[in-house]
Design a binder for these strands. Structure first.
Lengths: 268, 268
DNA sequence: TAATAATTTATCGTATATTGATATTTTTTA
DNA sequence: TAAAAAATATCAATATACGATAAATTATTA
C-alpha cells in the first residue's frame, strides 16, 4: 500500500485518480487504483462511479476502467476556441508545407512547470514521436522548451528551474547563459537534446493579454540540415511566429470588442 | 439567479462547472459562472482555483477562465490507447482515400444517451461540420446514430429513446420499424436528417469484450450520389467496419494475454 | 502616480457530504 | 451450477465543503 503524503481534498482526489491513466498504463482495475492511491476499495469504487457517470472514465473489459469520452468533447472545445491553438492551426500547416526537408512543426506552451505540445504538423517521412499534441516535455531541454523558458525572468524563472530540480549550480549557470543568448538571437537552436539525431529551432510566441507563453518550432533530422536551408527555415519560423501573434491579437481585439458591447448592454 | 434543481455533491459540482465551457461559450468570468450555477461567488472561486491548479481550467484575459491543457494531455492518452480510436485511425484514413466522391468518414460511439464522434477523416472539398471529432449528436437522427441505436434492444433501447424525449408514439413506431430495417440490412442510410443536402451510410462497429458500441459512416453530398458509386461505397464501408472489429479483437487478445501473464506472475 | 474599482484570497463557525469498515447484491468465471 | 470476483448499499463518525464577510491583491481610471 503506497500511502501518499497527504489525504487529498476537493478536486485533488479526482485528479489523482485521473492522473494514473497514462499512455503506458491506460486501464486500471479498482483494486489497482486503490493500491496505487493507498485508499480503501469502497472509497475508490465511489469515486470511479462518479467519474463514470460524468463520462470522465468508462468501464472497459475485465473489470478495468479507462478514460472516458468527456475528454474528447472538451478537447474539441479547446481545438475550436483556444486562442493559441486556433491562431496556430493554419499557420503551422502552411509552414510545414513550405519547409523543404522532412520535419515536424510544433506549437508548444507552458503548462505548470512543464511544456506541453498543443499542435503538431508533420511532413511526409518525418518521425519525431516526442513532439506530438498532448505530450509533456521537460522545460530545460530542447529548443521548443528553451524558447519558452527564455521568456521567464527573475522569480518566475527561478521557480521553473527549481521545479525541474536544477540544483546543480554549474548547470544552472550554463543554462542562464544559454537563455541569454536565446533572448538576444530571438531564436533557440539545439541538437540531440531531446532525441539523438534531431535538431530543433524555436521562436517565442506570446500574448500578454491572453496570458500565453509559447513557442513555435521546427524539428528535423540533423543530417538534413545544410547551410542553404537553415536561412530559409529560420526565416519561415520567425515570420510564422509573428503571424500567430498577430492573429491572436486580432482574436483578442474581437473578444474585447464583444465584451465592451456586453457591458454596455448590461448597463442599460 | 438560475437555481438548479439539486445541490451537486462529489464530482458533479466540478462537472457542472466544466460543462459550461462550450464552443459557443468558451470563456467565463467567476461572476458569470456563479450566476449560471446559482452559487455564491466565494464558492465558485474556490472550485475554479482548484480546477486551475489541476490544469482543467486556466485564467484567460480580463478575469475570464477557459479550459486548461489537462484536457489536451488526457486526449492524447485516449488517442494512443482507446481500442476503438486506435483500431479505427488507420482504417478510416484508407477508407477516405478509397472513396471516389468528396466525403467525411466518421467513427462514432455511444456516450450516455447521445452519440459522439471519436474520429473523422475528410477528403478534399468535403464540408460536413456536424461530423467532427468530439462533437455530440442526437441518437435518433442520422445514419451514424441510427446504426448505433439499432444495436440497443429491449430495455436499453427504451431507456435511450426516453432519454431523447421520444414520447410521441407514432414517431416511436416509425423509428422502431426503421431500426428493424437497419438490423436486417446491416447498414443504415439517411438523407437530410442531420444536414440538408447530405446523405449518410453507416455500419455497426462493436466489441463486446471492450464494451464498445459504435458505428462507421460515410457522409457526402446527396448530389454526388449515383447508382454506380453507392455499391462501391457500401462495400468499402462494410469491409472497413469488419476490419476495425477484427483489429479490436487483436488488441483484446493482447490485453488478455498480458493480463494472464501478470496474474501468473503475481501468483508465484 | 494616486485613487478607485474589480478581482481574488483568507477567515471561520456550522451543516453536511465524505469516509471506510462491513454486509449485501450482482456479475463473471470455472 | 457453484464459487469467486466485482460492484453497490448501509451507516455512524468526523473531516470537509459551504457561504457570508472581511481583507488583500490586482487592474483600471483620473
Amino acid at each position: 500500500m503506497i500511502k501518499s503524503a497527504f489525504d487529498p481534498t476537493g478536486f485533488t482526489r479526482y485528479q489523482q485518480l485521473l492522473d494514473l491513466f497514462t499512455v503506458s498504463a491506460s486501464s486500471w482495475t479498482v483494486d489497482e487504483l486503490a493500491h496505487a492511491l493507498g485508499k480503501p476499495k469502497s472509497s475508490v469504487y465511489r469515486s470511479v462511479r462518479e467519474l463514470v457517470a460524468a463520462g470522465y472514465l468508462e468501464s472497459a473489459a475485465s473489470a478495468k476502467y479507462r478514460l472516458g469520452p468527456a475528454f474528447i468533447v472538451a478537447n474539441r472545445v479547446i481545438e475550436k476556441t483556444d486562442p493559441l491553438v486556433v491562431s496556430g492551426a493554419a499557420v503551422i500547416h502552411s509552414l510545414a508545407a513550405a519547409v523543404a526537408v522532412p520535419c515536424v512543426v510544433v506549437l508548444a506552451r507552458l503548462y505548470g512547470s512543464q511544456v506541453v505540445c498543443v499542435a503538431d504538423e508533420r511532413t511526409a517521412g518525418s518521425h519525431a514521436p516526442a513532439f506530438e499534441r498532448g505530450r509533456l516535455m521537460p522545460i530545460d531541454r530542447g529548443a521548443t522548451s528553451l524558447a519558452i523558458l527564455a521568456q521567464a525572468r527573475g522569480k518566475a524563472l527561478a521557480n521553473l528551474l527549481s521545479a525541474t530540480g536544477v540544483t546543480d549550480s554549474e548547470r544552472s549557470a550554463v543554462l542562464t547563459d544559454k537563455l541569454k543568448e536565446i533572448r538576444k538571437a530571438g531564436i533557440a537552436v539545439t541538437t540531440d537534446e531531446v532525441d539523438p539525431g534531431l535538431t530543433g529551432w524555436a521562436v517565442p510566441v506570446t500574448h500578454k493579454g491572453f496570458g500565453i507563453t509559447a513557442s513555435l518550432s521546427i524539428v528535423c533530422s540533423t543530417d538534413d540540415v545544410t547551410d542553404l536551408n537553415i536561412n530559409e527555415l529560420t526565416a519561415g519560423l520567425l515570420s510564422s511566429g509573428a503571424l500567430i501573434e498577430k492573429h491572436m491579437q486580432l482574436v483578442f481585439d474581437e473578444v474585447v470588442q464583444v465584451q465592451m458591447n456586453t457591458n454596455r448592454a448590461s448597463n442599460q
